[in-house]
Simulated assay, not measured.
Amino acid sequence: MEIKDAEWLSKTKNDGECMTRRTVLTTAMTTGFALAVQPVAAETILTDTKGLKAGMITFKGADGVEVPAYYAVPTKLVAGKKAPVVLVVQEIFGVHEHIKDVCRRFAKKGYFAIAPELYVRQGSVSDKPMVEIFPVVSQVPDSQVMTDLDAALAYAQSTGSADASRVAITGFCWGGRIVWLYAAHNAKLKAGVAWYGRLVGQSNPLQPKSPTELADKVKAPVLGLYGAKDAGIKIESIEGMRAALKAAGKTKCEIVVYPDSEHGFHADYRPSYNEKDAKDGFAKLLAWFKKNGA
């Protein structure tokens, strides 16, 4: 379900009983979230599309496969100007409502935001419980993700609204790891912000290198945002990444660790959400993009 403006919901009635706007809004949004993340928290943020062009599109990947993506861009741009691009990389749950909302948040800030469905060849995970998601995601090659992000960028440029010389990337959880990899892949990238992305892992043919192993190949300034209470990403791995970046002379990269946050602290639809740290992280992200020309 694509929710464009939910103000009208404030007086909606259900079975003859007046519901609160928040209750109705949460119920309406649930259909846009992946099955594995439900129930959705009542505090979930909803960004409207006023002043934006937004929706689903498709573009061709390098192998000719049609890749779906959600995009959002301001309706009106400054005369003679194009919007800088931000590639938004999904959590493990795919491009569900939260990722679409993040795209709209960026568009409200003047960006052309695009979030491609990076598992399209392996299958949708939107209707799967968590235990069934891992087998799908494990079959996604890093090389495929890199070329699909390149193709998403090319699509954005083809619209005439995007400035492909000002490109940034951000991603969450599964997508946080991808941010580090893409920064090692695309020399034209201006900046990246990785939210609690895995930094180490066992090598295999589809995912041959971890971010720590690719630290010396990182071509753009990356800001890592992590939680000290993240049960899946140990402080030791964060310190290992810091050491690898330092050894490689990547002095423009930084990692911030929030002492009170868990994994997923930006995800406002989940119990792990930490409003204070999420807002601080997003402010740091915007400043990071601006500082580095994106």
Rank of each mutant, 00 (worst) to 15 (best):
I233F: 12
G249Y: 11
E239C: 03
K246Q: 13
D216N: 06
C253D: 13
V256K: 14
G224K: 07
K219H: 08
A243V: 02
S237H: 09
I235E: 14
D216C: 01
A220T: 02
I233G: 11
I255D: 11
A228P: 00
R242F: 01
E254W: 02
A243S: 15
G240N: 13
A228M: 02
V218T: 12
Y258H: 14
A220C: 04
M241G: 15
E236K: 13
D216M: 00
G240V: 10
P221G: 09
V218C: 11
K219L: 15
K250M: 04
A243I: 01
I238C: 04
D230V: 06
G232F: 15
G232W: 14
G232R: 12
L223I: 08
K250Y: 08
C253S: 13
V218A: 09
T251E: 05
G249A: 12
V218P: 06
A228H: 01
A231S: 10
G240E: 06
G227S: 14
E254R: 07
V256C: 03
V257A: 09
K234W: 00
G240W: 10
K229Y: 04
Y258W: 11
E254I: 01
D216K: 09
I255A: 12
D230W: 07
P259G: 07
G227T: 13
I255R: 10
P259T: 06
A220R: 00
Y226K: 04
S237W: 03
D230Y: 08
V218S: 10
A243L: 06
E254M: 05
Y226N: 03
K250T: 05
Y226R: 02
A244W: 03
G240C: 11
I238G: 03
L225Q: 15
L245E: 00
A244N: 04
Y226M: 08
K250L: 09
V222T: 09
A247S: 09
Y226S: 03
A215F: 11
K229D: 10
K229R: 13
A228W: 01
D216W: 00
I238F: 04
R242L: 03
K234E: 02
T251G: 00
A248Q: 07
A215Q: 08
A243K: 15
A228F: 02
G227K: 13
C253K: 04
L225N: 03
A243E: 12
R242W: 02
G224F: 09
E239V: 05
G224I: 09
M241P: 14
I235H: 12
K234G: 01
G232S: 12
I238W: 06
A247I: 00
G232D: 08
Y226D: 03
M241E: 15
G224Q: 08
C253L: 10
K217Q: 15
